[in-house]
Amino acid sequence: MSLRIVVTVKYVPDATGDRHFADDLTVDRDDVDGLLSELDEYAVEQALQISENSDDDVEITVLTVGPEDAKDALRKALSMGADKAIHVEDDDLHGTDVIGTSLVLAKAIEKAGFDLVVSGMASTDGTAGVIPALLAERLGVPQVTLLSEVSVEDGVVKGRRDGDTASEQLEASLPAVVSVTDQSGEARYPSFKGIMAAKKKPVQAWDLSDLEIDTDEVGLEGAWTAVDSAAQRPARTAGTIVKDEGEGGKQLAEFLAGQKFI
């Protein structure tokens, strides 16, 4: 038996950098260093663990949609241990929103062929967290999402989803779409050997025509949502800061009483 895993990853602006918008109100990806979204490292890690725990012949493909620099995210995932990569890149993709992105990813996943899709819980820039559900909807396969534990055996994926009100054990037959949280297990660091090996691993480039997607379904013009304005949040006005000289708790209580919280 073989098991084909596709891991979706995103190249995002570094959250510790000065993130901002470009003139067309898309996320500026030029002025801030980018990297593999931290939350996608957990997806790569779980795919690798599924592979290591499997008797099947497992092949892990990492997939990204993004500009030229997004190759860095693929390289990182390959150096962690993924087998090959697909980079969907097209100038007409600039400004694509979440619905359009899910279309491109779904078409690419179908073209690549898959038994299991593994995604992170959300990106660290857009943070919507809906791509895994959208992929399951578009691919017509079960969604087994927001897992803090995942395993695959005999064509069945099982996992634990820790929700707001309950912890649930989930089960679905492959093919399926899985997403994992930051509770699923620390992601490994690429080894030197892994980094060297990654340089030789294949990165396939596809554009919109390879995926038979019309340009009016993607990009800023084709987006299902429109951003009218983006304003920097005004800096919070400087507050009162006191040093505790033995009465700090009482002073704080006085402030809270003045604000009617007590």
Partner: peptide
Amino acid sequence: VFAASFTTKTRVS
């Protein structure tokens, strides 16, 4: 957005 450093106004188009 961006760790609450920006506020955007958005419509479904």
